[in-house]
Amino acid sequence: MVSLPRIAPMLATPGKLPPASVDDAYAYEVKQDGQRCIVYCPGDGTVVLRSRSGADITPAYPELAGLGTALGSRPAVLDGEIVALDGEGRSDFERLQSRMGLAGSPARAARMVTKIPAHLMLFDIVFLDAHDLTRSPYAERRTALESLVLAGAAWSTPAAAVGHGQQALDMTRTAGLEGLIAKRLTSLYEPGVRSRAWIKIRHVRTEDIVVGGWLPGHGRLTSLPGALLMGQPGPDGRLHYVGSVGTGWSDTERTTLATLLDTAASDTCPFTERPTAAGARWVTPRLVGEVRYATRTNAGRLRHPSWHRLRPDLTPDHLG
């Protein structure tokens, strides 16, 4: 049996559509809204799923175990996104959240399979048989992936369209999807790198942030967060303050956040620059969330941010 290499996922850089003059040098894939996953199939019928952070999440998704059988004796390392689909076939991160974090509770994960089934969208292959494909161009890797004809009840290989980027982007907007990933056909697979060869084009601007503190709400909400103080790791590895967010969550989400903040309470401000926020309460910076925003100020603050969701699949060490 072949020993499979551990490979960190290649990441896309936020940006705009490539210019029309180079449109046909890119393939366009629908941006999925789920949990990134590297899939290890050693060729003996087994499967190991690892998240972006490298954690083993295999027990959380028992419906994906059959992928190893589908590949047969061919050892492979695949790249994809685990999603939960809504009634219209769109990936819905909020639905998926109830499936995440169950790697330590296989019995509960098994019960959730029928309630909220997970689906693995495969979009790349980085190892096949005895061959490392990371130095092969994207176009060749896609050909190899599609040749495996991986299509099942719990996994599929969505199409990638070469060229026609504007049409593809318009289609995703009309369909209510998050956006596109543009991938240069000649691009190599760069493990662990946020590469400019892959561009993610979203219909709204979003950022992953780290929660470093919070401000209590007013009135009946004094025990709950009225705003979260946000940071992002800088090149120096320290947490830099990027503003506060106080809108966008439901009452249920606010209560969930309050519990998480309470368990992470700290006496120390984690930011390099202490925010001028009266009554701020600090937390150990381990909680990651995603916010929508309008623009950035010259000082790096996020303007008009709105809370989008928790990101339990990410840790501060894996941002950037």
Rank of each mutant, 00 (worst) to 15 (best):
M1P: 03
M1E: 06
L4K: 00
P5H: 06
R6Y: 07
R6E: 06
I7N: 02
L17Q: 06
L17C: 08
P18K: 00
V22A: 10
D23F: 08
D24G: 09
D24V: 11
A25H: 13
Y26Q: 03
A27Q: 07
A27P: 00
A27H: 10
Y28Q: 03
V30G: 00
Q32D: 14
Q32L: 15
I38Y: 00
C41W: 03
D44R: 05
L49S: 05
S51K: 02
R52C: 13
S53L: 12
P59D: 14
P59W: 02
P59M: 12
P62Q: 12
A65W: 04
G66A: 13
L67G: 08
L67Y: 01
L71R: 00
G72W: 01
G72R: 02
S73F: 04
A76L: 03
E81F: 12
A84V: 03
D86Q: 02
E88C: 10
D92S: 13
F93W: 05
E94M: 08
R95I: 01
L96H: 03
S98F: 10
R99Y: 09
M100G: 06
M112E: 14
T114Q: 07
T114V: 08
P117Y: 07
A118W: 05
F123D: 05
F123T: 09
F123V: 08
I125M: 02
V126F: 01
F127C: 09
A130Q: 11
D132W: 04
L133E: 01
R135W: 06
L145W: 11
A154V: 00
W155N: 01
G163T: 07
G163Q: 07
H164G: 13
A168D: 09
M171E: 15
T172S: 10
R173H: 14
R173D: 11
T174E: 15
G179F: 14
I181L: 11
L188V: 13
E190Y: 03
V193P: 01
R194Q: 12
R194K: 11
A197K: 10
K200S: 04
R202V: 00
T206N: 11
D208F: 05
V210T: 06
L215Q: 10
L215S: 04
L215G: 03
G219V: 13
R220Y: 04
R220W: 05
L221K: 05
L221P: 00
L221S: 07
L221D: 15
G226I: 14
G226P: 14
A227Q: 13
M230Q: 08
G231F: 07
P233H: 13
P233Y: 14
P235Y: 00
P235G: 04
G237P: 05
R238L: 09
R238C: 04
L239C: 09
G243F: 13
G243H: 05
S244Q: 12
G246H: 07
G246D: 11
T247W: 05
S250C: 12
T252Q: 11
T252N: 06
E253K: 14
T256E: 15
A258F: 14
C269A: 03
R274D: 08
T276V: 02
A280D: 12
P285R: 02
P285T: 01
R286L: 10
G289V: 04
E290M: 14
R292C: 07
R292V: 04
Y293G: 06
Y293D: 05
T295V: 12
R296E: 15
R296K: 15
A299R: 08
R301K: 11
H304N: 09
P316E: 08
L319S: 09
